[in-house]
């Protein structure tokens, strides 16, 4: 019941897409929903489990590229391709989680940043022949058939996915796994002493958050008709970090609502990219000084050796 109450604000985007008729407004809301889903995913790993990743763009981009490849080579229908983004995102998250599970927070931030940046650079280097003889890849990315074809359907799909995604994340946050994540975030040594497999919990947080980000990436690629290296760049990760830092890290709904509102407002007002980046920078600095973010970043990770799997909860 509590989860339903906490997830209630997510019904606002769903109501909005049925109330709004304007095509531009609908496309803005669709993009905002995808962005909010991405930030909600970041909040599970960065906020709830206390792993400040600066490379959340990696699962986002992985999801986007996966959906584009699957759709482009007609390996599966478009909805399956988009949903498959979650699988690719989860795998990318698993890689980051595995690499960073035993690292200090500072090292984790550097490693996640480096992995996402490496993926972005690799994606901008490769070019290949696409079905139909078109050479794709590089900085301009890979094209994809736009799905859903009209703005209203896209906005409704994105809003529905956002509601389901946030509800699922809230459910996970309230489950025994969520409790384990919060315990690990607060004090990993205490968590290990309580029988929690710290490494497993950390990796799982990355996998789940990565799957959510991958779904958001698949959705974004389908709606914009393209997966590009920009999706793997530092900016989306910093946006997620900045928004979650000021909107109550670990609450899932707070960062998702803030991301939804901010993205919709910035898109609607057609704010230039430079001002958006400045805003992100200001939020990052403000977030670093903010009490809630500081409380999340303060805890020191102690555990460098995994607790035996037999003691996992």
């Amino acid at each position: 019941m509590t989860i339903l109450w906490r997830a209630a604000p997510c019904l606002v985007p769903l109501g909005l897409v049925f109330a709004v008729q304007d095509r531009f407004a609908l496309s803005v809301l669709a993009f905002a929903a995808a962005q909010a889903l991405f930030v909600a995913g970041w909040d599970l790993v960065g906020g709830a489990s206390g792993q400040p990743t600066l490379g959340h763009a990696l699962p986002l981009g992985a999801g986007a590229y996966f959906a584009t490849f699957v759709a482009g080579w007609n390996l599966a229908p478009l909805p399956t391709a988009v949903a498959g983004g979650a699988l690719a995102g989860g795998l990318a998250g698993a890689l980051q989680g595995r690499l960073g599970a035993r690292l200090s927070r500072l090292s984790l931030a550097v490693v996640t940043l480096a992995t996402a940046e490496a993926a972005r650079e690799v994606s901008s280097v490769f070019r290949f022949v696409w079905p139909g003889g078109l050479v794709v890849g590089g900085d301009s990315g890979i094209p994809m058939v736009v799905y859903p074809a009209d703005e209203a359907s896209a906005a409704r799909l994105a809003a529905a996915v956002l509601v389901v995604g946030v509800a699922a994340l809230l459910w996970i946050g309230g489950s025994s796994l969520g409790l384990a994540m919060r315990t690990v975030r607060a004090d990993d040594r205490l968590a290990a002493a309580s029988g929690i497999d710290v490494v497993r919990v950390r990796v799982l947080a990355f996998v789940i958050a990565g799957a959510v980000a991958g779904l958001a990436g698949g959705l974004a690629a389908a709606m914009t008709g393209r997966a590009s290296p920009a999706m793997l760049s530092l900016e989306p990760s910093l946006f997620a970090f900045a928004v979650a830092s000021i909107a109550g890290p670990g609450t899932i709904v707070g960062p998702a609502a803030a991301a939804y509102t901010m993205t919709a407002a910035l898109q609607w007002l057609d704010v230039p990219g430079t001002i958006r980046l400045t805003l992100d920078a200001a939020l990052l600095i403000a977030g670093a000084f903010g009490p809630s973010a500081a409380a999340h970043l303060r805890h020191v990770r102690h555990v460098s050796t995994p607790v035996p799997a037999s003691s996992a909860r």
Partner: peptide
Amino acid sequence: VLVRPLRPEPVAAAIALLGVALLAEEGFS
């Protein structure tokens, strides 16, 4: 202005400096 108040929180300091880097990029442009 930024680093000294955040020195006890190394991750927060690094993040704030990343914010400075973004601001600098905008300043250069």
